[in-house]
Design a protein around this nucleic acid. Structure first.
Lengths: 225, 225
DNA sequence: ACCTGAACACCGTTCAAGT
DNA sequence: ACCTGAACACCGTTCAAGT
């Protein structure tokens, strides 16, 4: 129940609202009592991470790896959007997470099943994980830093951009405003990021397909540079 | 020179070593004096971000957009690896960055030049930014959280993974150990991430090529779901 | 075994006061 | 104009002491 309280605290009061002291207050106990039960702050976050990851079930393997990978990525993103503060705190403050290795294992299995060699498995795994988790964590910066007055000024600054220095941003202002990364100030257009995420998945999957063995044109891919 | 001191502090003593108070101490001044000169903490980080971004020059537009995009992404990553603590602090704690819009502008211009429609520009921009910046920020978690004893235990845990629960991670242990995201404990194999990053760029560029107008097979791309 | 209570070494920020 | 100095409301963590 201590981890329940931590989860509640982070979601309700945000990253800054969570501390060992506020958690203790929530539980009507002295801060130091927490150290006896769960150890220090990073261990509490470890428990929160596990709790959060329980939301996420690996999809049943189907006949199409593309649809399986898309569905896994969507589930990951949905779990993150359900608990944005937790997702962000856990993704950026902890590299460790040995308990939640089911997903990496499933992805590696899928990539090996495609017939990739060892280097292909490694680099495709890293590219997928980095791109998908990275996209989501950047997407969440808005939800999390929702500081309303600085957001309002961002809208104004974007509208007032110098057409000489930033010709392309000005030309496509209507397309980008409130929808492009680092140009958003409210989640009114949140649906746009759904589509951008789907687009990222399309790019990655198309790219992987082109690398699969048994293709006519063998592109150099990972060995280039 | 106040921003120089901040940059030095973050790089030398890490994210936790930087504070308004430690910065003041470094400058032999009372913490409150900083508030007169540069405002609060987030404004200091804004100055640090600008300083960091000055490292990064947009490459000259060439005849090949693929090579241009690759080179820009490489320069971004190199700048981040040069100042890992700064890159991380700035990327994850600030959505705002209206001063450093040259790069977004250049990317949007490039995408428009490819003949993409407005939706294509938006979603490809988001996919590229999210994937590239996200990959790099996840890659940096190791450099930054370099807590050596927890890293050592990660190596042991990975070696001791249960072959029943994680058959694929065990089968490909030699490939993944210390080289795959969230399975690294030292930067001894840092070169592996170079290759993974190049691979990600290959996947993204291949994917974009397949979406370009004037292709035989028009894939539904962004509208699928 | 489990919690209190005091203590240490920190934070960011505001604001009156000095020069 | 520029800085000091005190103050407020916080942190994470350790450790002796209580029951």
């Amino acid at each position: 129940m201590i981890v329940d309280a931590a989860v509640r605290l982070i979601e309700d009061r945000g990253t800054d609202g969570f501390s060992m002291r506020s958690l203790a207050t929530e539980l009507d106990v002295y801060p130091t009592a927490l150290y006896w039960h769960v150890g220090d702050r990073s261990q509490v976050l470890g428990l929160v991470e596990r709790r959060w990851m329980e939301d996420l079930e690996v999809p049943e393997p189907g006949d199409d790896w593309r649809e399986w990978a898309r569905e896994l990525a969507r589930r990951y993103r949905r779990a993150a959007l359900r608990h944005p503060h937790i997702a962000r705190l856990v993704t950026v403050t902890r590299a460790r997470s040995m308990e939640t290795m089911e997903i990496p294992d499933a992805i590696v299995g899928m990539l090996a099943g495609l017939g990739l060699d060892e280097d292909g498995i490694l680099h495709t795994y890293n590219a997928l994980m980095g791109a998908v988790r990275g996209f989501v964590v950047l997407e969440l910066t808005l939800t999390v830093d929702g500081d309303s007055d600085s957001n309002a000024s961002l809208e104004a600054e974007l509208a007032a951009l110098d057409a000489e220095r930033f010709p392309n941003l000005v030309a496509h202002h209507a397309t980008l405003a409130n929808r492009a990364l680092s140009m958003r100030w409210s989640d009114a257009e949140a649906a746009a990021m759904d589509e951008s995420f789907e687009h990222l998945l399309t790019l990655l999957i198309t790219g992987i397909e082109a690398q699969l063995p048994g293709r006519s044109r063998r592109t150099g891919g990972t060995t280039r540079r």
